[in-house]
């Protein structure tokens, strides 16, 4: 464990909690892409099946349980409890265009052709593009609530910190996982224009509005 990975995990946890609290407190999921949240639930489910097969640490296990629990709770709030506030018209990204190619790639490019390893690889590839429906929805509505931008900032920051973690681990532990690194770079790059808008607008107290 190193400082980048720990702060990355905490940033990820913060994002998940911010979103859950935003929906719960405001009793509304306006501006939130339910499709992205379903993809994240799939990402955690396929990645953390090793909860059943291997134990790494209390921290590892508890974080995985929290991530999975919050992901499904968020999906439940969006599609069940507060479904009247779900903006399905703007959440129109065709996720099959993500899941199918990612599934195919996971079968072709992986570290080991075993069931759990292919699912882990699928989860890594899927996570790198899972935010696209959310970013697409914001581009369609042309704006985002400030709390949603904080959620996205923490979510984007987490994988950027993981990139620093992989540099650290390469240097100090001569560990590197090309699949995770490449997917992590793609994932972080997808946030770049959002990061620019967040830093130049939201941090200056303005509302995040895209040129419609």
């Amino acid at each position: 464990m190193n400082v980048f990975r720990l702060t990355g995990d905490l940033s990820h946890l913060a994002a998940i909690i911010i979103l859950l609290l935003k929906i719960w407190k405001s009793r509304s999921c306006a501006g939130i892409s339910g499709k992205s949240q379903i993809l994240f639930a799939i990402v955690f489910t396929t990645r953390y099946l090793d909860l059943l097969t291997s134990f790494i640490s209390i921290y590892n296990t508890s974080m995985k349980v929290i991530y999975i629990g919050c992901a499904y709770a968020t999906v439940y709030l969006i599609y069940m409890k507060f479904r009247a506030t779900y903006d399905g018209n703007h959440d129109s990204f065709r996720v099959e265009f993500l899941v199918v190619p990612v599934g195919g790639l996971a079968v072709l490019v992986n570290h080991d052709f075993s069931f759990l390893e292919i699912l882990w690889t699928f989860s890594i590839y899927l996570e790198s593009v899972a935010i696209l429906p959310q970013l697409f929805m914001i581009s369609k509505t042309g704006e985002a609530e400030t709390i949603t931008t904080h959620y996205l900032f923490c979510l984007g920051l987490y994988r950027a910190l993981y990139l620093l973690n992989w540099i650290w681990r390469f240097y100090f532990e001569s560990f590197f996982d090309m699949i995770a690194i490449v997917a992590g770079v793609v994932q972080t790059v997808l946030y770049c224009d959002f990061f620019y808008l967040y830093i130049t607008k939201v941090l200056k107290g303005k509302k995040l509005s895209l040129p419609a």
Binding site: D50, S54, I56, N60, M63, K64, Y67, D112
Partner: peptide, 10 residues
Amino acid sequence: KAKNLLHDEL
């Protein structure tokens, strides 16, 4: 491919 496939990261 006996890589240590125990993924210790979240």
